[in-house]
């Protein structure tokens, strides 16, 4: 469903040097030589410290960012070349951003999604009823989005991403800022979506509870490279003496684990002339 082969993305940035009006070009590698594939129906956690390249990967998978190296296919398409076709086969949710119309009732944003993805009226009504029930949207379906709580807005965003029934769902930190109850409800929904509809899910998160409860596979990206790929049990096994999953992941991020052999080098300073 998702295939990456040697994918890299570098950005050229101009930096001011000490001398007046002189600038030098520098190349920053946000992602380099990234290869993995996700089979249909998998629920994959995509972890990594801030600035590791998670969002860059997602932007390449959705086609809004073109990789500078390598090959990438999502739902059988080359994302950057077939962006609009792909958009109909993929759902994307950013926990820190929203696709909903801030000043209008939630229901109106859904109606626009129907027109945007050309979903016919009956199918739309059926899906909306289903999502309304599963995500418990009834009480605020007609409330302007700006009046929703974060948990409500998040559920609204997830519904909006699923109204065209995409076979792939990409979630970028969907549980950020949610309280324990909202989190649990969201996890139950995602788990059901994956188990019953077979929707392939790729999830980035800093909440390891999400990973433990949802993902049958975990990938860790660090400094733009994949540093771990396996099950949650495999992940624990990288640091058998650590008791909590947080500590296991912390060791992986800080290079204490076996997987990260490279000298620690933060993205911001990994500048090649």
């Amino acid at each position: 469903m998702i295939e990456l082969e040697g994918v890299g993305r570098s950005f050229t940035v101009r930096r001011r040097t000490g001398r007046l009006l002189r600038r030098e070009k520098a190349v920053v590698h946000a992602v380099r030589d990234l290869s993995f594939s996700v089979a249909p129906g998998e629920f994959v956690g995509y972890l990594g410290p801030n600035g590791a390249g998670k969002s860059t990967t997602i932007k390449m998978m959705t086609g809004i960012l073109t990789p500078t190296e390598g090959r990438l296919r999502v739902a059988g398409l080359d994302p950057s070349r077939r962006r609009t076709v792909l958009a109909r086969r993929i759902g994307v949710v950013f926990g820190q951003r929203t696709t909903l119309w801030w000043d209008l009732p939630l229901r109106d944003s859904f109606e626009l999604v129907r027109h945007l993805y050309k979903v016919d009226r009956n199918t739309f009504r059926q899906r909306l009823d289903e999502l309304t029930e599963l995500l418990e949207l009834t009480s605020f379906l007609h409330t302007p989005v700006r009046q929703l709580s974060l948990g409500q807005r998040m559920r609204g965003d997830i519904a909006a991403a699923l109204l065209h029934a995409p076979p792939v769902l990409v979630l970028d930190e969907p549980t950020i800022g949610l309280d324990v109850v909202s989190k649990a409800a969201l996890r139950a929904f995602l788990s059901e979506l994956n188990a019953e509809r077979g929707t392939t899910v790729l999830l980035t998160t800093h909440d390891l509870g999400d990973v433990e409860r949802l993902c049958n596979r975990v990938m860790v990206i660090d400094q733009g490279r994949l540093s771990f790929d396996g099950t949650v049990e495999d992940l624990r096994a990288t640091a058998p003496d650590e008791s909590s999953i947080e500590d296991v992941v912390a060791r992986l991020y800080t290079g204490g684990g076996t997987a990260a052999a490279e000298p620690a080098q933060q993205l911001g300073s990994s500048v090649a002339q």
């Binding site: 959705t62 809004i64 962006r83 609009t84 076709v85 958009a87 950013f94 696709t99 993805y117």
Partner: peptide
Amino acid sequence: SGDVAIDLMRPA
């Protein structure tokens, strides 16, 4: 703010 990412993803 970077929210334009969402706008760019839409098939429109």
